[in-house]
Simulated assay, not measured.
Amino acid sequence: MPHLIVYASEPDLTGREAEVIAALTDAVVAVYGEWAREIAVVQLVGLPPGRWGIGGRAAAAPAPRVTFGIKDAAFSRPDADEIVARLVAGVTDALVAVFGEQVRAGTTVELVGTPAGRSGIGGEVVLT
């Protein structure tokens, strides 16, 4: 299942939570298809001012950072480069649509693959 954890400034997130969740879910669906809508997970982590550092000092206006968990097998597909590019662009565009163009240059999207058998749901190991 696609699992996105978004780290952003708490003041930037406040009042925009539903919009961010919807935009990121739509970005996932644009790549995977409508079937992914019901299983896409978006978690928002708001960091208070002063708790995000860049270059050794507190960042005044940090751009969002996204950790995007997907099945490791996605990286072995013949179209893996295209999928990665579409996910990174789609997630970035979704965040820009909510927060504004000023976040584009600094937005980070990290795709993290989970090998089969290395995660679990409901106390059971997922083998696929």
Rank of each mutant, 00 (worst) to 15 (best):
T14C: 11
R77K: 14
V28H: 05
F99S: 01
E82Q: 14
V6E: 02
A73I: 11
A63P: 04
Y7S: 13
P115N: 09
V28P: 00
W35P: 00
V103T: 14
F99Q: 05
A58R: 03
G106P: 00
R51M: 13
I54K: 06
L111P: 06
R65S: 09
A105S: 14
E10D: 09
V29I: 11
G90N: 10
V103C: 03
P115Q: 11
V112R: 14
A105L: 00
W35V: 13
V84E: 11
V45E: 09
E124N: 12
L111D: 02
G113A: 12
G69R: 13
E110L: 14
A23G: 04
G46N: 04
A36H: 06
G90Q: 09
T128Q: 14
G50H: 08
A73S: 14
V98Y: 04
R77W: 09
E110Y: 10
I54R: 12
V41W: 03
A8N: 01
R104E: 00
V125P: 02
I5E: 08
G120D: 05
E10K: 10
A116M: 02
V98E: 00
V96R: 07
R77I: 03
E38Y: 08
F75N: 00
D12K: 08
H3T: 11
A116C: 01
G120W: 04
P2F: 11
A73N: 10
A80Y: 05
G123T: 11
D81W: 00
T107M: 02
T114R: 09
A59F: 03
E101D: 15
R104S: 00
A94D: 02
D26A: 15
A8Q: 00
F75K: 04
E101W: 03
E82R: 13
P2D: 12
A59E: 12
M1Y: 08
P2L: 12
E38F: 07
T108K: 11
I83L: 15
D26C: 09
R16F: 04
E17N: 05
E124L: 15
G113M: 08
E10A: 15
G100V: 11
G120N: 07
A40E: 06
G33Y: 03
V126Y: 04
T14Q: 14
M1I: 08
T114Y: 12
V45L: 12
P49K: 10
I54V: 15
A40S: 15
L44A: 08
G15C: 01
L87D: 05
A97P: 00
P11S: 13
V29F: 08
T67E: 14
F75R: 11
R57H: 10
E110M: 13
V41K: 14
E110W: 08
G90R: 06
K71Q: 13
S119Q: 10
Y32R: 13
A85T: 04
T128E: 13
T114P: 01
D93Q: 06
V45D: 00
